[in-house]
Amino acid sequence: MINVLGTFSAIWLVLWVLLSVLFVVIYPVVRPLLFRLHPRYGSALLLFYWTVPFLASISSTSILFMPTVESILVDAHCHAECLEHAPLIYSNGLAWFGVVIGSIVFVLLSVQFLLTMTRSVQLHRQFNSLGRPLGEYYAIKSQCPLVFTLGWWHPSIYVSDGLAQGCDEWDLSIILLHEQAHQERRDNLRLLLARLCSAILSQNLARQMMADLQLMTEEACDFRAAEKFGHIAVAETLIKVKRLLMAHPAPLPMGVLGFAEREVETRIMALLNAANRVSPKPWQLVFLGAGILLALLLLVSPLHHGSEWVITFLAADVPHLH
């Protein structure tokens, strides 16, 4: 059991790291293509892009440990005494290494998830308790002009009195439609998923990736509001809210956010040039999905041989499972 679990963890982690490095390297090429798409598709594909290293590594490693599936995808071969083996040859040292590292990663991811969840639940409870429910949102008695959507499964919208007083009914409708889009799309959950799946990336890379994903997510909600109110009206509301926020003493000095700087400017430019964004056709998405599935299946054979080569290299006395 330890051998299987440890070997699984070791292969999965090595593959996760390698795929993450590969995806980071090719991201500068993929990024402009994604930002040329309609943000609805762009944000979904960007989320998918950053979860692929995690999902592909875990699914291809799982396939590797399913003898029936693996036997179809990996050509017959033998080692040393040419004994049949399934799923892989193993090494005790590697297995224990895998168990230890896998456990550390699992614990770190769980702690990160639990801390974020606790913070989310606390904030949700406090704002719900202190705010006044007004139909589709909670009114918050604060002069800071802020509106936000909080929560993962059942997100709620919070609008401060400062924002409600500084906007007219038209602007407020646009803002609420934008926030409702966050609610329906469960954007906070998407961001959490992306953050956990890219936990292996360095802090700097992860911030850049999250900033892009947040930007694309905001654009997707802007475009949703624009379907009803028009792109120009949404752009005007963005300016108005930004001015309200700038007039309030709360904003922190320029440069604090790093990658997300000038987000509003980018979103306004996206709205003004909405006609340039492309919506992929359904057959193109099906083609992309089929291509990814094929790549995943084709990955199994080289992964099997590569893993065995690494195991043999690391351990001279490699016993077989059978």
């Binding site: 509106v147 934008h178 926030e179 999250m210 947040q214």
Partner: peptide, 21 residues
Amino acid sequence: HDGRLETILSSFVNVAADLDD
């Protein structure tokens, strides 16, 4: 601002004073 709420809440516009008049 420091990104610790990035996966918990989405705000309509970012709160940084990153644009001048």
